[in-house]
């Protein structure tokens, strides 16, 4: 099994990206669901951009951003003594940008469906903000979280274009499954390509079945 490191790297990338996005996207989705700020459509559009942009375009801009001649790239270089481009860390940031809408949109939908009612009720019963979040908001939005987490994870696992642009093909560092498949096909190594593609297909299929089953069972359905 020569491609085991690629599989592990993919899983690691998807897991880290999903976890970080869950934390970052929660306040953003909350704000989008409840605000009437005039800038809301702009922010909403920005978070949806990765859905419609070609991965190569996002990858290109990220590559420029990661360059040590730009503030982000140079700050990273100063702090860690490594570059963001063609590194695993760069890949995580790129994946987060790429998968952002898959986390934000289901959460925004869940939060706006919930409304402010349960939060007001909990507040008047004496619950503080964190108490309300953990014991009321999170359980009531669990359908939304489940969808968001799974979609983000699966989507990150399968990304290709951005990884190629930002990460390249460094074994153990940036060589994820999709890159490995690409290379196996290029070198006419169809057996390996079949195996990896089948793995990804089966995984995605099972995950989606799981999401739809669980969402049906939960009383809070995402329409």
């Amino acid at each position: 099994m020569s491609e085991l490191p690629a599989i592990w790297l993919s899983l690691e990338l998807a897991l880290i990206t999903t976890a970080l996005l869950a934390i970052l996207a929660t306040p953003l989705a909350w704000w989008l669901a409840h605000t009437s700020h005039p800038l809301r459509p702009v922010i909403e559009a920005i978070t949806a951009l990765p859905l419609v942009m070609p991965p190569t375009v996002i990858g290109f801009y990220l590559l420029l951003l990661f360059s040590p001649s730009n503030p982000l790239g140079s700050a990273w270089l100063t702090v860690t003594d490594t570059t963001l481009a063609f590194s695993f860390h760069g890949l995580v940031i790129a994946s987060m940008v790429y998968s952002l809408p898959f986390m934000v949109q289901p959460l925004t939908h869940a939060f706006s469906q919930m409304g402010k009612g349960p939060i007001e009720a909990a507040t008047l019963l004496g619950a503080g903000p964190m108490d309300t979040f953990w014991n009321i908001v999170l359980p009531l939005a669990r359908g939304g979280y489940l969808t968001a987490l799974v979609l983000t994870f699966a989507h990150t696992l399968g990304e290709f274009g951005i990884v190629l642009m930002v990460g390249g093909n460094i074994p153990g560092e940036t060589r994820v499954i999709s890159i490995a498949i690409y290379e196996q096909v290029e070198t006419l190594n169809y057996d390996q390509a079949h195996f990896l593609s089948g793995l990804l297909l089966a995984f995605s299929f099972i995950v989606l079945i799981l999401v739809y089953t669980l969402n049906r069972r939960s009383p809070l359905r995402l329409s």
Binding site: G117, P118, E120, A121, A122, L124, I136, P139, L140, R142, P219, L220
Partner: peptide, 15 residues
């Protein structure tokens, strides 16, 4: 504030 509020739409916690 120690306010007990009964809302028109009850607002029970559905979970």
């Amino acid at each position: 504030r120690g306010v007990g509020f009964v809302f028109q739409d009850n607002r029970l916690f559905n979970h």
